[in-house]
Structures are given as C-alpha cells and as structure tokens.
C-alpha cells in the first residue's frame, strides 16, 4: 500500500524550493549574518583578552552581562536565520522555543542563585 504521509512530506519539501532571483536575496542575507557573527566574535575576543578580571567587580559584572547578551544575539541569528526557524510557521516556532525558554530560567536559577548560596555556605563572610 502506498503511504500517503510520505506523499504529503514530499509536498512540504518541494514547497521550500525557490528560483534564482529569490536565492540571490537569501544569499545576501547569509553574507550579512556571517559578517555580523564574525564581528561579534572579534569584539568578544578583544574584550576577553584585553580587560583584566580584577578591574573592579562592577566592571567585570557588566562585561559578563555584555558577553551573555552578545552570545544570545549570535544564538538568535543562528537559530532564526541559519536554521530557518524564523521562516517556519508560528506554531512550530513556539513549540521549539517556549519549552526551552522555561528551561533556561531554571538553568539561570541553578547557575547563579543556588551556586552562590552554596559557595557562601563554604566560604561565606
């Protein structure tokens, strides 16, 4: 018996096809994202290797958050542009992203709040 789900799948795959003109537009965007990712990485390395860690606790905390912000920006461009999640249907986009965003809140809680509490137990003031 012929599997009808495969036939539907093929039609989804073919719906992603595009012509040369559209391709040129997409490639232009790819070049833009490439340059952006490279520039962010270069800035990160310059900051990371030139600013010493003991340059005042406030400065380093600010830099930490700057790093996290730049990383999330890079991650966003990779997921939404390179992995085309931005071009998928909203329902798929949120099915993928929303559970992970919840998980990230939990990760931040463990990595920052809980670990600092444990550290204070051992070395606390």
């Amino acid at each position: 018996m012929e599997r009808d789900d495969l036939i539907v799948d093929e039609s989804y795959a073919r719906a992603a096809h595009h012509d040369e003109e559209h391709g040129r537009k997409i490639r232009k965007k790819i070049v833009f994202v490439t340059i952006l990712l490279t520039v962010i990485t270069v800035v990160e390395v310059l900051i990371g290797s030139s600013i010493p860690r003991d340059s005042g606790s406030g400065t380093w905390t600010a830099i930490k958050w700057l790093f996290i912000g730049m990383t999330l920006l890079k991650a966003g461009y990779i997921v939404l542009s390179f992995m085309h999640l931005g071009d998928e249907r909203k329902s798929l986009k949120y099915t993928i992203l929303v559970p992970y965003i919840f998980f990230i809140c939990y990760l931040i809680l463990i990595a920052l709040t809980e670990s600092t509490y444990i550290s204070n137990l051992f070395y606390g003031n």
């Binding site: 799948d9 559209h22 965007k29 085309h84 071009d87 998928e88 249907r89 329902s91």
Partner: peptide, 24 residues
C-alpha cells in the same frame, strides 16, 4: 525559507490530513 509559508486558515491547518506545522 523566507516567504514559503502560505496563509491557511486555522481550521484547515488542524483538520488532519497533513502536518499542522506544514513541515515533514
């Protein structure tokens, strides 16, 4: 890729016979 998601009514999307996400 960009602009490939055609507009389909919600009822049609979730009516069965295909992926509501329109991906394989």
């Amino acid at each position: 890729m960009a602009g490939h998601t055609e507009s389909v009514s919600k009822a049609e999307l979730w009516d069965g016979g295909g992926s509501p996400f329109r991906v394989s």
